[in-house]
Design a protein around this nucleic acid. Structure first.
Length: 586
RNA sequence: GCACCCGUAGCUCAGUGGAUAGAGCAGCGGAUUUCUAAUCCGUAGGUCGAAGGUUCGAUCCCUUCCGGGUGCGCCA
């Protein structure tokens, strides 16, 4: 990575110049904010000039005098108030092109310290369809898991399915009184949802129905054989259907350890919390209060109340003896830490649950858990009214509905361009484009931003979308198809020479792939990769318009072929990290 | 009441303690006997919610306020 190498060189130059760096300060090199000035830049001299109260330009000059970058840069300039601007030499970029071709990972180095990381995402509920809200967790989690794996981490993906919620009271009652067996065998989730909604409506109107449902739930929790049997059947039917959905989405899990998996662990867990003095009884429930170890502003168990602090405890056992979300999550942490020896656990769950996770993590730490736990929060998908989609009350758009519609629109687009492809090939391409478009729409956005659901945004095939990137890839492949093996593929050890600015610009973008991939995990943000790939595709399209490949000859042709090969490789690899498959034609 | 997230072009959204704030869509004007036009090039569009503060430098950090969303003891 040029950035990392330049940073090393810069730090060495500071040392060689005999400049004492303040504690905690390390000079850094970043991508240039504007390519007019160069390829990379550093603000270190200005930051240090302020700290040391010296002239930043003079400081920069001292460093430049000691800087050894002849093998990388054609120019290192001091500009403005003290910017250090690095311009890479053509030779360095030309050599890098070979490096990308040679490396199976397109030049992305592995993480310095590989970790074992559990990624918890998607987490649909049994007997409820996945709706658009699940798009974010599923695609974000999948992309992050892919990136972590690609960087050499050991990743365990776990789908913490909601298979033991209170919704089962209603489902059990509905199963016994409202079930349409034939509909169930046709589409299990659909029928279970219908039953759930029917009973839910009845329970709202009639107190007696609600009581019946509660009774069914209690019997289930007490281990009633009939109810357990029905529950197991619901879980089985739903998981069967979910497997097909994930298959279509190209999302895989190593485990499906749902909430029910931890049932046996809950009672002992609460007892151990009580025994350790972490939890205590309050108003009949068992709760965890603040232990005063954190400043009140950072304490997740305290809420400011005027000038005072009010307790915001975490409940782990209800006064009726039932357990909660927090209890299950604590048991889950135990399992992941003990059984899997996780170094890190990533929770790809919506932002509204921030307080919940702060509390659960704090309780876990008090129990001695040292595993790094991160809540990778994301904003909500809002309805047209600007409010959150509600699963319980309002209707919402189903995830499959969105995917199907996207594929349908892609199908029309594919059919409208006659590429001489048979029906199966067209269908395959439509699926790649349709699901890719929806994934890209999600992943190209900052995960914390709330957004209004919009069909047009999700399904757009123009502009900054998956098809734009796929088209760039297709253009790389079509050149090699025309070539049909009539000349050797561009090799890693060939000498390449740039003759057009578009070639250099593309090579520069290709070189940045490694940096883009590594930056994702710093803040768990796949949109950085999506943005990068869009820029790469843009550079490739511009190159494609400006630089004929097959009409060129000699070294120019070889260099352009190498750029096409590398661009295709990076696009395919990068899209793969986002969970988006590529196609050779479209 | 308190906490968290958000407020950037007509619309949907990127972005960062740095240099002249960027895309896509929509608008306007061009490019194709094609290595796939699902493309490219150009043009237009902004008080980065408001006001203070810190800084050589703030859209970004701090404070207050306004607006939207979400959450805050027995749902998950």
């Amino acid at each position: 990575m040029f950035r990392a190498v330049l940073t090393d060189r810069l730090q060495a130059a500071f040392a060689a110049a005999g400049i004492d760096l303040p504690v905690g300060f390390a000079p850094e090199v970043a991508l240039a904010s504007d390519t007019r000035f160069g390829d990379y830049q550093s603000n270190a001299a200005m930051i240090l000039g302020k700290r040391l109260k010296t002239n930043p330009r003079a400081l920069a000059q001292q460093v430049v005098d000691k800087l050894e970058t002849a093998d990388l840069c054609e120019k290192v300039a001091i500009d403005g108030p003290g910017f250090l601007n690095f311009t890479l030499s053509a030779a360095a970029l030309e050599a890098r092109l070979g490096g990308i071709l040679a490396d199976a990972k397109a030049g992305v180095p592995a993480a310095a310290a590989p970790k074992r990381i559990v990624v918890d995402f998607s987490a649909p509920n049994i007997a409820k369809p996945m709706h658009v809200g699940h798009i974010r967790s599923t695609f974000l989690g999948d992309a992050l898991a892919r990136v972590a794996r690609f960087l050499g981490h050991e990743v365990i993906t776990d789908n913490h399915v909601g298979d033991w919620g209170t919704q089962f009271g209603m489902i059990l009652h509905g199963w016994k009184t409202r079930l349409d067996r034939e509909a169930l065998s046709r589409d299990a989730i659909h029928e279970l949802v219908r039953v759930y909604k029917t009973v839910n409506a009845e329970a709202k109107a009639d107190e007696a129905v609600l009581e019946t449902c509660k009774g069914e739930l209690v019997r289930l929790q007490q281990g009633d054989a009939e109810n357990l049997g029905i529950w197991k059947e619901c879980v089985r039917l739903t998981l069967e259907q979910l497997a097909k959905v994930y298959e279509a989405l190209d999302v895989r899990f190593d485990h499906y350890l749902g909430e029910s998996f931890y049932n046996e662990a809950l009672a002992p867990l609460v007892e151990s919390l009580l025994a350790a003095g972490i939890a205590r009884e309050s108003e009949g429930a068992v709760v965890v209060f603040s232990d005063g170890s954190l400043p009140p502003e950072e304490d997740p168990f305290l809420i400011r109340d005027k000038d005072d602090w009010k307790a915001a405890p975490c409940i782990v056992r209800k006064s009726d003896g039932g357990f909660l979300y927090a209890t299950t999550d604590l048991a889950t942490i135990d399992y992941r830490v003990r059984k899997w020896q996780a170094d890190e656990i990533w929770y790809v769950v919506g932002a509204p649950q921030q307080l919940h996770f702060r509390q659960v993590f704090a309780v876990a730490r008090r129990r001695g858990v040292t595993t790094r736990m991160s809540h990778i929060a994301f904003g909500s998908i809002l309805g047209p009214d600007g409010k959150m989609f509600k699963t319980r009350s309002g209707e919402t758009v189903g995830l499959l509905e969105v995917i199907d519609e996207a594929i349908e629109r892609a199908r029309e687009a594919v059919a409208s361009r006659d590429q001489g492809l048979d029906a199966d090939a067209q269908e395959e391409i439509a699926r790649i484009i349709g699901t890719g478009a929806v994934k890209y729409a999600e992943l190209s956005q900052n995960r914390l931003t709330d957004y209004k659901f919009s069909w047009d945004k999700m399904l757009s095939l123009q502009g900054n979308t998956a098809p734009y990137l796929l088209n760039a890839y297709v253009r790389t492949r079509s050149i090699f198809r025309k070539l049909d093996g009539s000349e050797p593929a561009p090799a890693a050890d060939e000498v390449y020479t740039f003759t057009d600015p578009a070639e250099r610009a593309l090579a520069m973008k290709l070189a940045q792939f490694a940096e883009a991939v590594h930056d994702i995990l710093a803040d768990h943000r796949p949109n950085l990769l999506a943005n990068y790939l869009f820029e790469l595709a843009n550079s490739y399209h511009a190159f494609y318009e400006a630089c004929p490949v097959l009409k060129a000859e000699g070294a120019v042709r070889r260099t352009r072929l190498a750029l096409c090969e590398a661009a295709g490789k990076v696009l395919k690899t990068g899209l793969g990290l986002l969970g988006i498959r590529t196609t050779e034609r479209m």
